[in-house]
Design a protein around this nucleic acid. Structure first.
Length: 105
DNA sequence: AGTGTGACTTGGG
DNA sequence: ACCCAAGCCACAC
């Protein structure tokens, strides 16, 4: 596994319950600001094997990015279970729920 | 090696 | 706020 991939995995694992991070944010935290699409690939390839909290990753617009309706429902359910509000269009208020590393909560 | 694809992002209109 | 075109990076064929 490439170092960047490893860092993406660690970054995703570091997102706390009740918070979300965007693809671009994860890419930046892992050291490559423009690598949002690699984050997508990591989620596909490593989510299961590494037990990643994949549901805490959303798009820069605060939207659930999954295409598949069932999967969207699943993500919505997992997030709301952690106290993250998701509206009926699958949108999340990033001002409220965005993960900010280093914040004292 | 070229092309297509993806749970993306940004910038412009 | 929505739509679109480019840019982005790695992978599979």
């Amino acid at each position: 596994m490439q170092p960047f991939t490893q860092r993406v995995v660690e970054t995703i694992k570091s997102i706390p319950e009740g918070k979300v991070a965007t693809y671009g944010q994860i890419a930046e935290l892992a050291g490559s600001r423009r690598a949002a699409r690699r984050v997508v690939w990591v989620l596909h390839a490593m989510s299961e094997a590494h037990g990643l909290p994949w549901h805490r990753v959303v798009s820069a617009s605060g939207e659930i990015a999954l295409r598949d309706d069932e999967a969207r429902m699943m993500q919505t359910m997992l997030l709301e279970h952690e106290g993250v509000e998701v509206d009926d269009r699958g949108r999340i208020d990033l001002d409220r729920y965005r993960y900010r590393p280093g914040d004292a909560d």
